[in-house]
C-alpha cells in the first residue's frame, strides 16, 4: 500500500459494540485518509450510525481502539478531548438543530461555547457559514420548526462547519430529500470539501450520492467492514450482499447516469 500511517486521519481497530446480547460490530477495522470523502454503506441495522457515534465518542465501544488525528478518542483526558472535538463537526440526520435558537444562533452556538469572540464578528462569521451552505438571507432569523427538511439539513451542515473542522461526519445527508435537493446537497458537500480542505465521513443509503461524492466506499456487513475501495472496485467484490447492492437495478441506473462524466 502506498499510504503511510500519517495519512490516516481516523483509525479504527478491532471495534466491538454490543447492545445487550446483540452484537453490532465484531472486530471492525477502518482507515480514513486525510482529505478524502468516504462513504459508509450497509443494510439497515448494520451499525453505520453506531460506527459514526463510536468514532465521535458519543458511544462507548465494548472493545477496540479508535484514533482520530492520532489520538485515542476514549483514553484522552477531558481537556484534550475538548480540543480534539473542536477539530471535527457532526451533522445529524435531521440537522438536530436546537429548536429554541434561530438558524444563525445555532451556527453561533459552537463559536460561543468554544471561543471568545465579540458579538459582531461572531454574527458575521455565522452569517457567512449560513450563506455558504446555500441558505437564503431570510433563513437566518428563522427557527428550525419553520424550515423544510432540506433547509434543516443545510443549517445542520452550517453548524457542523462553524469552527472550520478538519473532519465532518454526516449522517445520511441526503435521506428524505427530493432528487433535486439531494443533488444540490451532493454538490454542496463537494464544493465545501474543496474550499475548506475537509475530510468527509458520511453514512448513506443513497447510491447517487455515493457516485457523485465518494473517493472511497466502505461497506459494512457481517459486523465488519467487508470492503473498502473506489466505486469501480466495489463492482468486483464477490460477497453476495455487496454484489446485490452495487449490481442491483438502482445501482446500475446510478452508474449509468454518472458514466458520461466519469469515463471517456
Amino acid at each position: 500500500m502506498e499510504d503511510t500511517d500519517d495519512d490516516h486521519i481516523i483509525r479504527v481497530r478491532g471495534l466491538v459494540t454490543r447492545f445487550g446480547t446483540h452484537t453490532v460490530h465484531d472486530g471492525l477495522d477502518l482507515d480514513v485518509r486525510r482529505g478524502e470523502i468516504i462513504g459508509v454503506v450497509g443494510g439497515s441495522g448494520t451499525g453505520k450510525s453506531v460506527l459514526l457515534r463510536a468514532i465521535v465518542g458519543l458511544l462507548k465501544p465494548n472493545a477496540g481502539h479508535i484514533e482520530v488525528f492520532g489520538q485515542s478518542v476514549r483514553d484522552t483526558p477531558e481537556e484534550e478531548y475538548r480540543q480534539l472535538r473542536r477539530r471535527w463537526g457532526v451533522m445529524f440526520q435531521d440537522g438536530a438543530l436546537f429548536s429554541s435558537l434561530t438558524v444563525r444562533q445555532n451556527v453561533e452556538a459552537p463559536m460561543r461555547e468554544q471561543l471568545k469572540l465579540d458579538d459582531d464578528l461572531r454574527k458575521t462569521l455565522a452569517g457567512i457559514k449560513v450563506r455558504m451552505v446555500g441558505l437564503p438571507e431570510n433563513a437566518m432569523t428563522k427557527f428550525p420548526s419553520e424550515l423544510s427538511g432540506g433547509m434543516r439539513k443545510r443549517a445542520g451542515f452550517a453548524r457542523a462547519i462553524a469552527l472550520d473542522p478538519e473532519i465532518v461526519f454526516l449522517d445520511e445527508p441526503t435521506a428524505g430529500l427530493d432528487p433535486i435537493g439531494a443533488a444540490a446537497f451532493d454538490i454542496l458537500i463537494k464544493q465545501l470539501q474543496a474550499a475548506l480542505g475537509l475530510t468527509v465521513f458520511f453514512v448513506t443509503h443513497d447510491l447517487d450520492s455515493l457516485h457523485a461524492n465518494c473517493d472511497r466506499v466502505a461497506v459494512l456487513a457481517d459486523k465488519k467492514v467487508l470492503a473498502v475501495g473506489t466505486m469501480q472496485e466495489m463492482l468486483e467484490v464477490e460477497h453476495p450482499w455487496v454484489r446485490e447492492y452495487f449490481h442491483g437495478p438502482r445501482a446500475r441506473a446510478a452508474i449509468e447516469s454518472s458514466r458520461p462524466k466519469g469515463a471517456a
Partner: peptide, 16 residues
C-alpha cells in the same frame, strides 16, 4: 491554490 479558492468562496458569501 486552496487559499485562493477559500477566499473566492468567502467573497461570494459576504454579508450584504
Amino acid at each position: 491554490e486552496a487559499q485562493e479558492q477559500l477566499i473566492e468562496t468567502i467573497r461570494q458569501n459576504m454579508p450584504p
